[in-house]
Amino acid sequence: MSTSKISILVVSGSLERLQMAGMVASVGAVSGSEVTVFLSMNALQYFIKGSDTSAPAEGPFGDVMAQKNVPPFKSLFENAVELGDAKIYPCSMAMDVLDADAEDLESYLSEPLGLTKFLNDAADHQIWTF
């Protein structure tokens, strides 16, 4: 089994992008890739416990998808961690801007990470941006 490394940078708060990022994270992680996810900007808010998880669609596909029984994007990120040992890091800058503490976040997230460390770690990874 290959041990490719995938880094996923998620900044969008749109349903389609969060869904696709969750799909890449979960399927990549369960298929033997070492997956690292970095959540920042508009993406991080959904991973604060108790937050509204109904992300807005950015196009007609998202509107249709919202009516179908697709796995919720947060479940996909959790699957990536639970079933595939992915690591999901909240961006420390975004944490500061939102005035959020680590204990405010979903328990399957890892500790906050700075961009410098993320970029260093990602130097030999595929990088996907959503």
Binding site: S26, V27, V30, K68, P71, S75, L76, L83
Partner: peptide, 17 residues
């Protein structure tokens, strides 16, 4: 049945464990 990709795959993997 009724769930979309990658739901069935995730359910399979959770089950196989």
């Amino acid at each position: 049945r009724g769930t979309f990709c990658p739901g069935p795959l995730m359910e399979l993997i959770a089950g196989i464990k």
